[in-house]
Protein backbone atom coordinates (compact mmCIF):
# COMPACT_ATOMS: atom_id res chain seq x y z
CA UNK A 1 0.00 0.00 0.00
CA UNK A 2 2.73 2.46 0.91
CA UNK A 3 4.49 1.36 -2.28
CA UNK A 4 1.45 2.29 -4.38
CA UNK A 5 1.07 5.54 -2.48
CA UNK A 6 4.68 6.40 -3.27
CA UNK A 7 4.15 5.75 -6.97
CA UNK A 8 0.90 7.73 -6.86
CA UNK A 9 2.45 10.75 -5.22
CA UNK A 10 5.39 10.57 -7.60
CA UNK A 11 3.04 10.63 -10.59
CA UNK A 12 1.01 13.49 -9.09
CA UNK A 13 4.09 15.58 -8.45
CA UNK A 14 5.33 14.83 -11.96
CA UNK A 15 2.11 16.14 -13.50
CA UNK A 16 2.22 19.18 -11.22
CA UNK A 17 5.78 19.87 -12.42
CA UNK A 18 4.75 19.51 -16.07
CA UNK A 19 1.97 22.01 -15.41
CA UNK A 20 4.34 24.50 -13.77
CA UNK A 21 6.85 24.20 -16.61
CA UNK A 22 4.06 24.75 -19.16
CA UNK A 23 2.88 27.90 -17.39
CA UNK A 24 6.45 29.14 -17.21
CA UNK A 25 6.95 28.41 -20.92
CA UNK A 26 3.76 30.29 -21.77
CA UNK A 27 4.89 33.32 -19.74
CA UNK A 28 8.34 33.11 -21.27
CA UNK A 29 6.91 33.23 -24.79
CA UNK A 30 4.05 35.67 -24.22
CA UNK A 31 5.91 38.13 -22.00
CA UNK A 32 9.54 37.37 -22.72
CA UNK A 33 9.51 37.33 -26.50
CA UNK A 34 7.16 40.26 -27.14
CA UNK A 35 8.51 43.84 -27.18
CA UNK A 36 10.04 45.85 -25.57
CA UNK A 37 13.23 43.94 -26.38
CA UNK A 38 16.48 44.32 -24.52
CA UNK A 39 18.95 44.20 -27.41
CA UNK A 40 21.99 44.65 -25.20
CA UNK A 41 20.96 41.60 -23.16
CA UNK A 42 20.19 39.62 -26.31
CA UNK A 43 23.57 40.40 -27.81
CA UNK A 44 25.37 39.47 -24.58
CA UNK A 45 23.54 36.15 -24.44
CA UNK A 46 24.25 35.35 -28.09
CA UNK A 47 27.94 35.70 -27.29
CA UNK A 48 27.71 33.68 -24.07
CA UNK A 49 25.44 30.92 -25.33
CA UNK A 50 26.51 30.70 -28.94
CA UNK A 51 30.02 31.94 -29.45
CA UNK A 52 31.45 30.54 -26.22
CA UNK A 53 29.99 27.09 -26.97
CA UNK A 54 31.84 26.81 -30.29
CA UNK A 55 34.97 25.01 -28.99
CA UNK A 56 33.00 22.37 -27.06
CA UNK A 57 30.57 21.73 -29.89
CA UNK A 58 33.32 21.71 -32.52
CA UNK A 59 35.50 19.18 -30.67
CA UNK A 60 32.53 16.95 -29.90
CA UNK A 61 31.46 16.96 -33.54
CA UNK A 62 34.95 16.23 -34.82
CA UNK A 63 35.48 13.14 -32.66
CA UNK A 64 31.93 11.91 -33.19
CA UNK A 65 32.36 12.13 -36.97
CA UNK A 66 35.67 10.28 -36.74
CA UNK A 67 34.31 7.51 -34.53
CA UNK A 68 31.27 7.16 -36.75
CA UNK A 69 33.48 6.68 -39.82
CA UNK A 70 35.44 3.94 -38.04
CA UNK A 71 32.32 2.11 -36.89
CA UNK A 72 30.61 2.23 -40.27
CA UNK A 73 33.79 1.02 -41.94
CA UNK A 74 34.13 -1.90 -39.54
CA UNK A 75 30.45 -2.79 -39.91
CA UNK A 76 30.49 -2.13 -43.63
CA UNK A 77 33.38 -4.52 -44.47
CA UNK A 78 31.20 -7.44 -43.32
CA UNK A 79 28.89 -6.77 -46.27
CA UNK A 80 31.41 -5.26 -48.69
CA UNK A 81 29.72 -1.91 -48.17
CA UNK A 82 32.74 0.13 -47.08
CA UNK A 83 32.04 2.80 -49.67
CA UNK A 84 28.93 3.82 -47.75
CA UNK A 85 31.11 5.38 -45.05
CA UNK A 86 31.03 8.96 -46.37
CA UNK A 87 27.32 9.06 -47.03
CA UNK A 88 26.28 7.45 -43.76
CA UNK A 89 28.60 9.70 -41.77
CA UNK A 90 27.02 12.71 -43.44
CA UNK A 91 23.49 11.46 -42.83
CA UNK A 92 24.16 10.44 -39.24
CA UNK A 93 25.78 13.73 -38.41
CA UNK A 94 23.30 16.08 -40.06
CA UNK A 95 20.14 14.26 -39.05
CA UNK A 96 20.91 12.92 -35.59
CA UNK A 97 24.32 13.21 -34.02
CA UNK A 98 25.05 16.84 -34.89
CA UNK A 99 21.96 18.25 -33.19
CA UNK A 100 21.83 15.71 -30.35
CA UNK A 101 25.51 15.89 -29.39
CA UNK A 102 25.55 19.69 -29.66
CA UNK A 103 22.28 19.85 -27.72
CA UNK A 104 23.63 17.72 -24.88
CA UNK A 105 26.96 19.53 -24.71
CA UNK A 106 25.31 22.95 -24.73
CA UNK A 107 22.89 21.75 -22.03
CA UNK A 108 25.84 20.89 -19.81
CA UNK A 109 27.41 24.28 -20.40
CA UNK A 110 24.56 26.70 -20.86
CA UNK A 111 21.54 25.31 -18.99
CA UNK A 112 23.80 24.88 -15.96
CA UNK A 113 25.22 28.39 -16.26
CA UNK A 114 21.79 29.99 -16.71
CA UNK A 115 20.32 28.07 -13.76
CA UNK A 116 23.24 29.03 -11.53
CA UNK A 117 23.13 32.68 -12.52
CA UNK A 118 19.37 33.15 -12.27
CA UNK A 119 19.22 30.95 -9.16
CA UNK A 120 21.73 33.22 -7.43
CA UNK A 121 19.73 36.23 -8.55
CA UNK A 122 16.58 34.63 -7.13
CA UNK A 123 17.96 33.78 -3.68
CA UNK A 124 19.66 37.18 -3.32
CA UNK A 125 16.37 38.92 -4.27
CA UNK A 126 17.86 40.45 -7.43
CA UNK A 127 14.88 39.17 -9.45
CA UNK A 128 12.47 40.87 -7.04
CA UNK A 129 14.61 44.00 -7.30
CA UNK A 130 14.12 44.04 -11.08
CA UNK A 131 10.35 44.09 -10.61
CA UNK A 132 10.54 47.00 -8.19
CA UNK A 133 12.62 48.91 -10.76
CA UNK A 134 9.83 48.65 -13.36
CA UNK A 135 11.58 45.90 -15.29
CA UNK A 136 9.80 42.65 -16.05
CA UNK A 137 12.20 39.77 -15.28
CA UNK A 138 10.67 37.66 -18.03
CA UNK A 139 11.49 40.32 -20.58
CA UNK A 140 14.87 41.25 -19.16
CA UNK A 141 16.22 37.82 -18.18
CA UNK A 142 14.21 35.00 -19.77
CA UNK A 143 13.37 36.44 -23.18
CA UNK A 144 16.94 37.27 -24.26
CA UNK A 145 18.24 33.87 -23.12
CA UNK A 146 15.58 31.89 -24.94
CA UNK A 147 15.85 33.97 -28.07
CA UNK A 148 19.65 33.76 -28.05
CA UNK A 149 19.56 29.97 -27.65
CA UNK A 150 16.96 29.50 -30.41
CA UNK A 151 19.00 31.70 -32.77
CA UNK A 152 22.45 30.30 -32.02
CA UNK A 153 21.75 26.57 -31.70
CA UNK A 154 21.01 26.10 -35.44
CA UNK A 155 24.19 28.02 -36.26
CA UNK A 156 26.18 25.88 -33.83
CA UNK A 157 24.69 22.72 -35.31
CA UNK A 158 25.40 23.92 -38.84
CA UNK A 159 29.04 24.32 -37.85
CA UNK A 160 28.96 20.98 -36.00
CA UNK A 161 27.66 19.32 -39.20
CA UNK A 162 30.59 20.63 -41.20
CA UNK A 163 33.17 19.74 -38.55
CA UNK A 164 31.61 16.31 -37.94
CA UNK A 165 31.68 15.46 -41.63
CA UNK A 166 35.22 16.74 -41.74
CA UNK A 167 36.08 14.45 -38.80
CA UNK A 168 34.78 11.51 -40.81
CA UNK A 169 36.73 12.71 -43.82
CA UNK A 170 39.99 12.92 -41.86
CA UNK A 171 39.60 9.40 -40.48
CA UNK A 172 38.33 8.06 -43.79
CA UNK A 173 41.16 9.44 -45.89
CA UNK A 174 44.01 9.09 -43.43
CA UNK A 175 43.45 5.68 -41.84
CA UNK A 176 40.76 3.95 -43.90
CA UNK A 177 42.37 4.58 -47.28
CA UNK A 178 39.60 6.53 -49.02
CA UNK A 179 40.42 8.81 -51.88
CA UNK A 180 39.98 12.54 -51.10
CA UNK A 181 37.95 13.44 -54.14
CA UNK A 182 35.79 10.33 -54.04
CA UNK A 183 34.96 10.86 -50.37
CA UNK A 184 33.90 14.44 -50.95
CA UNK A 185 31.92 13.56 -54.07
CA UNK A 186 30.12 10.74 -52.27
CA UNK A 187 29.15 13.13 -49.50
CA UNK A 188 27.92 15.98 -51.65
CA UNK A 189 26.03 13.66 -54.01
CA UNK A 190 24.23 11.95 -51.19
CA UNK A 191 23.30 14.61 -48.66
CA UNK A 192 20.06 16.42 -49.39
CA UNK A 193 18.95 19.83 -48.21
CA UNK A 194 16.19 18.21 -46.12
CA UNK A 195 18.78 16.22 -44.14
CA UNK A 196 20.46 19.42 -43.05
CA UNK A 197 17.33 21.50 -42.44
CA UNK A 198 15.74 18.77 -40.32
CA UNK A 199 18.79 18.90 -38.07
CA UNK A 200 18.63 22.68 -37.89
CA UNK A 201 14.95 22.59 -36.94
CA UNK A 202 15.81 20.15 -34.16
CA UNK A 203 18.59 22.50 -33.06
CA UNK A 204 16.18 25.42 -32.68
CA UNK A 205 13.83 23.29 -30.58
CA UNK A 206 16.73 22.07 -28.45
CA UNK A 207 17.85 25.68 -27.96
CA UNK A 208 14.40 26.53 -26.62
CA UNK A 209 14.50 23.54 -24.26
CA UNK A 210 17.98 24.38 -22.98
CA UNK A 211 17.24 28.02 -22.16
CA UNK A 212 13.78 27.20 -20.80
CA UNK A 213 15.12 24.58 -18.39
CA UNK A 214 17.95 26.84 -17.24
CA UNK A 215 15.56 29.75 -16.64
CA UNK A 216 12.80 27.65 -15.06
CA UNK A 217 15.04 25.96 -12.51
CA UNK A 218 16.96 29.17 -11.82
CA UNK A 219 13.75 31.15 -11.24
CA UNK A 220 12.37 28.50 -8.90
CA UNK A 221 15.47 27.87 -6.83
CA UNK A 222 15.20 28.52 -3.13
CA UNK A 223 17.21 28.05 0.01
CA UNK A 224 20.63 29.58 -0.52
CA UNK A 225 23.70 28.09 -2.17
CA UNK A 226 22.47 24.52 -1.83
CA UNK A 227 19.23 25.40 -3.60
CA UNK A 228 21.17 26.98 -6.44
CA UNK A 229 23.28 23.83 -6.76
CA UNK A 230 20.14 21.72 -6.91
CA UNK A 231 18.67 24.00 -9.57
CA UNK A 232 21.79 23.61 -11.68
CA UNK A 233 21.71 19.82 -11.52
CA UNK A 234 17.98 19.72 -12.26
CA UNK A 235 18.39 22.03 -15.24
CA UNK A 236 21.02 19.77 -16.80
CA UNK A 237 19.20 16.51 -16.10
CA UNK A 238 15.77 17.68 -17.23
CA UNK A 239 17.24 19.52 -20.21
CA UNK A 240 19.10 16.42 -21.40
CA UNK A 241 16.11 14.12 -21.01
CA UNK A 242 13.78 16.55 -22.75
CA UNK A 243 16.24 16.92 -25.63
CA UNK A 244 16.43 13.16 -26.16
CA UNK A 245 12.65 12.83 -25.95
CA UNK A 246 12.09 15.78 -28.28
CA UNK A 247 14.66 14.33 -30.67
CA UNK A 248 12.70 11.11 -30.95
CA UNK A 249 9.44 13.00 -31.45
CA UNK A 250 10.97 15.27 -34.09
CA UNK A 251 12.65 12.40 -35.93
CA UNK A 252 9.37 10.53 -36.22
CA UNK A 253 7.61 13.75 -37.25
CA UNK A 254 10.16 15.02 -39.77
CA UNK A 255 10.88 11.70 -41.46
CA UNK A 256 7.39 10.24 -41.52
CA UNK A 257 6.89 10.10 -45.26
Amino acid sequence: MTFLATIGSFIFSMFAEVGRVSIFARDAVLRGLLPPWYFRQLFEQIIRIGYNSLPVVGLTAFFTGGALALQIYIGGTRYNAENLVSSIVALGITRELGPVMAGLMVTGRVAAAIAAELGTMRVTEQIDALTTLSTNPFKYLVGPRILAAVITMPILVGIADIIGIFGGFVVGTSSLGFNYAAYIKNTTDFVQVADVTSGLIKAAVFGFIIALMGCYHGFNSKGGAQGVGRATTNAVVSGSILILAANYALTSLLFSE
Partner: peptide
Protein backbone atom coordinates in the same frame (compact mmCIF):
# COMPACT_ATOMS: atom_id res chain seq x y z
CA UNK B 1 0.82 46.38 -12.23
CA UNK B 2 3.98 47.72 -13.91
CA UNK B 3 2.60 51.24 -13.64
CA UNK B 4 1.87 50.76 -9.94
CA UNK B 5 5.41 49.38 -9.47
CA UNK B 6 6.76 52.58 -10.98
CA UNK B 7 5.46 54.42 -7.89
CA UNK B 8 7.34 52.09 -5.51
CA UNK B 9 10.94 51.86 -4.47
CA UNK B 10 12.41 49.09 -2.36
CA UNK B 11 15.61 48.64 -0.39
CA UNK B 12 16.28 44.95 0.07
CA UNK B 13 17.71 43.27 3.13
CA UNK B 14 20.84 42.04 1.37
CA UNK B 15 20.85 45.11 -0.92
CA UNK B 16 20.13 42.79 -3.93
CA UNK B 17 22.54 44.72 -6.15
CA UNK B 18 22.93 43.38 -9.68
CA UNK B 19 26.31 41.62 -9.71
Amino acid sequence: LDQMMGRFGMVFQGAALFD
